[in-house]
Design a protein around this nucleic acid. Structure first.
Length: 217
DNA sequence: AGTAGGATAATCT
DNA sequence: GATTATCCTACTG
């Protein structure tokens, strides 16, 4: 391949709100390449997972109906659904679909494009590639906590902002791959994990990692 | 390079 | 009382 560094990105994303209002399995890959800005750090999303709503997707927090924790999933598209898990980790979602219909996209990984020193200070010991490689790491690098629950990420001046890709940063369509979700039973039925192929910040728990075994000699 | 097990607390049954 | 949309460390080869 000749044109190194030339990668003309995919088509620009013009209507982020409209994208989020649609089906979650369409919105999720559309978020790849978008920018997430919080607490002085900006990153480019490289890996996400889609979760559908009540009664449809057994892996979704909203599958069994509305609770205190998942209430925001039933709200407007673009709101932040932040939850605490495994006794120590925060994870970050973007709410999709119109109000009253639950679904969300889990933000699994990204690469830091601005404020990297701040991100490093929040995750001492991590190499740059790992700063936001994984949903809990991503939240930690951006300083996301319970305080961000329900924030409207499409609103100007919000503590957490979701923005369309920077010019040329949208992934090429052929680089958007999908596969089973991580840590989900029955994941094969809904290959709703989407990532940017080849990006080093994509979390390592990939399906069928093709280990290239070199012949000896 | 790859895998296994422990940490640790809110949420739901 | 069981479960969890995870991460880190230590161990093996």
């Amino acid at each position: 391949m000749a044109g190194v560094g030339r990668d003309a990105g995919g088509p620009p994303l013009t209507d982020l709100a409209g994208l989020l209002a649609g089906p979650v399995q369409v919105a999720a890959p559309g978020l790849l390449g978008c920018r997430l800005v919080a607490n002085g750090v900006t990153l480019r999303l490289t890996e996400v997972e889609a979760y559908d709503g009540t009664g449809v997707d057994a892996a979704s927090h909203a599958h069994r109906g509305r609770t205190l924790r998942n209430a925001v999933m039933f709200g407007r598209p673009g709101l932040a659904y932040v939850y605490f898990t495994y006794g120590m980790h925060w994870c970050m979602n973007v709410v999709c679909r119109e109000e009253g219909v639950a679904s969300a996209v889990l933000l699994r990984a990204g690469s830091i494009v601005d404020g990297i020193e701040l991100a490093r200070s929040r995750r001492p010991g991590s190499v740059d590639r790992d700063l936001a490689r994984g949903p809990a790491r991503l939240s930690q690098a951006l300083g996301i906590t319970r305080a961000d629950y329900g924030v409207d990420m499409l609103a100007e001046g919000a503590a957490v902002r979701l923005l369309p890709p920077a010019p040329g940063a949208a992934p090429r369509p052929e680089d958007v791959r999908c596969g089973p979700r991580v840590g989900v039973v029955g994941a094969k039925e809904r290959p709703w994990r989407f990532w940017v192929h080849g990006d080093p910040s994509v979390s390592p728990y990939r399906p069928h990692a093709p280990r290239v075994k070199r012949a000896a000699g």
